[in-house]
Design a protein around this nucleic acid. Structure first.
Lengths: 296, 296
DNA sequence: TATAGTTACGGCTCACGTAACAATT
DNA sequence: AATTGTTACGTGAGCCGTAACTATA
């Protein structure tokens, strides 16, 4: 169970090939073969079937552990080094696309106005990656968004000792096209939308809604990207419903020349769009200042 | 950050001595010295001060990570092996002292009556150790108790992918001696007991109450052991208050010849004594049967 | 001066690379 | 026949033990 062998194992499993893993890790094919053999001998189990190279049931099980385990290992290293590092004035921020809402964008602007020496780099990526970047010290602060009951914390994947605190909560709206039968409503209940046609996007994972409401939420279109602008255009064109924070929809009313997406407030269940600030323990100097500023 | 070096590091830190760690791990003093040097070189930080041997701030930080990390590593190994192992008829149970209440003791008896071939070993230990034993596969099932709001899960320390499900919830009572000024009350509010004299025991950690209610709960006596019988006798003798599940107190009323502990129901906040069943994913065969039986 | 951690050095293990081999398509 | 994983074997890095050294109480 040497982490070294574990890394090799996940790489081989990911590529489905010993040679490809060897190329990526800078070893020879032979070394990879020996490493996998060593891991299998250590556990006394076959972890991969050969030709084609695929994880066995035991291998799949190990894969579920290996990722988080290696992440925590890197996170621990990063955390110890971070605690001893000198505070930098170049801060790296990682955020999910919907996390940088108008409120937080303004707070960030104010903080930068107050501390002109501060250099900020902002990087957009998925939830898991935000968590991983903060845990591994690749980002000083992270902003992750999600759907939760008011004042409830988000259920973020565990990436080791890390602090998460809510910074904004905002009304959730059901986004739909202007011609949709429900467009005129003053408010909607999620229970009434279980059988509507939904847009599947990483921005609003339907699995989360099914957790809350049970089965349903059929997928009309699956959009794999995370671009908010694209999602809004897809909604406007009638590809399906999705949940968005109110501020993610354009403020204007109707437009004659193109389809428009409308937001109808969600009446029940009581849910909000919540953004949480992530950071390793003890954010030092500038990072702590910025964290305070973002918390409002 | 080799786990091997990490284990050496925690052992040295625990003993406060290189030689003692060497003795425990079966190495020479010299090897330990080289291992610590290697770890410090890898991180580029001093982790231990010498003479006396104590962790530096960076070392303390690493210690916070190392324990859970090594536990998860052992847990992952155990989980993979468990999934591939043949189901056994000798089941090992780990439980905290207050977890085996009358209800669960009866359910266990019924299960054993229905499956005569089943051999059960029961081991009592602290919360963390129950979690660790289940995670590492040293126990097939675990029972951990704690204080929580009704239907709320316990906040158990994370020991990797493990399933926890509530099995019983029971009324909490404030245990006090018969001569206590509050002994006559029909019910008590925790808020009124903030300044009372409390018994500190692992069975009812006052830190948990302070989390809920803020500071207070002064310690009259700190009992380091976890024997329920002893705690009840201490309470009866007037050493202080504690919270216990109603079933932990003797059923009888008063006795002339010796001091008696009484239980007064806790009216507010609404809290219960909750027991959760812990198991690794996929409990196989007999373990799954027993888990079902204990869940009622 | 005694105790305890560090450094020097030698031996041995083990992990990797080269290269020949085997198995699958 | 080509591709890809396995096995054999030699080399070199690294880890541990012995022993000499050093620093602290």
């Amino acid at each position: 169970m040497d982490p070294h062998l574990l890394t090799t194992f996940v790489t081989v499993a990911r590529h489905g090939s010993f040679s490809a893993a060897a190329a990526e890790l800078g070893y020879t094919q032979s070394a990879i073969s020996q490493q996998i053999a060593a891991l299998e001998a250590d556990l006394g189990l076959a972890l991969l079937s050969r030709r084609p190279v695929e994880p066995t049931p035991a291998g799949r099980r190990l894969l579920e552990h290996a990722g988080p385990l290696l992440l925590r290992l890197r996170a621990a290293r990063a955390d110890v080094l971070r605690a001893a590092a000198v505070p930098r004035h170049r801060l790296r921020l990682a955020a999910t696309p919907l996390a940088v809402n108008p409120v937080l964008a303004l707070r960030l602007a104010r903080a930068r106005a107050e501390q002109p020496r501060l250099e900020v780099t902002l990087h957009t990526c998925g939830r898991e990656e935000v968590g991983a970047m903060v845990a591994e010290g690749e980002a000083d602060l992270g902003l992750a968004d999600g759907i939760a009951a008011p004042s409830d914390p988000l259920r973020l994947p565990d990436a080791g000792p890390m602090t998460a605190a809510g910074v904004t909560e905002e009304e959730l709206v059901v986004a739909l096209d202007a011609g949709h039968p429900l467009a005129g409503r003053a408010a909607l209940r999620l229970a009434d939308l279980v059988d509507a046609r939904w847009l599947q996007t990483p921005l609003c994972p339907l699995a989360r809604l099914r957790d809350l409401m049970g089965d349903g939420f059929p997928v009309a279109l699956d959009y794999q990207g995370d671009d908010v602008h694209t999602v809004v255009n897809l909604v406007a064109a009638g590809h399906g419903l999705t949940l968005l924070p109110a501020s993610a929809l354009p403020a204007c009313g109707t437009a004659a020349d193109r389809p428009v997406a409308l937001g109808v407030p969600l009446a029940a269940p009581r849910l909000v769009h919540r953004v949480e600030l992530l950071h390793g323990a003890l954010p030092a100097g500038p990072a702590a200042d910025l964290a305070r500023a973002l918390s409002g």
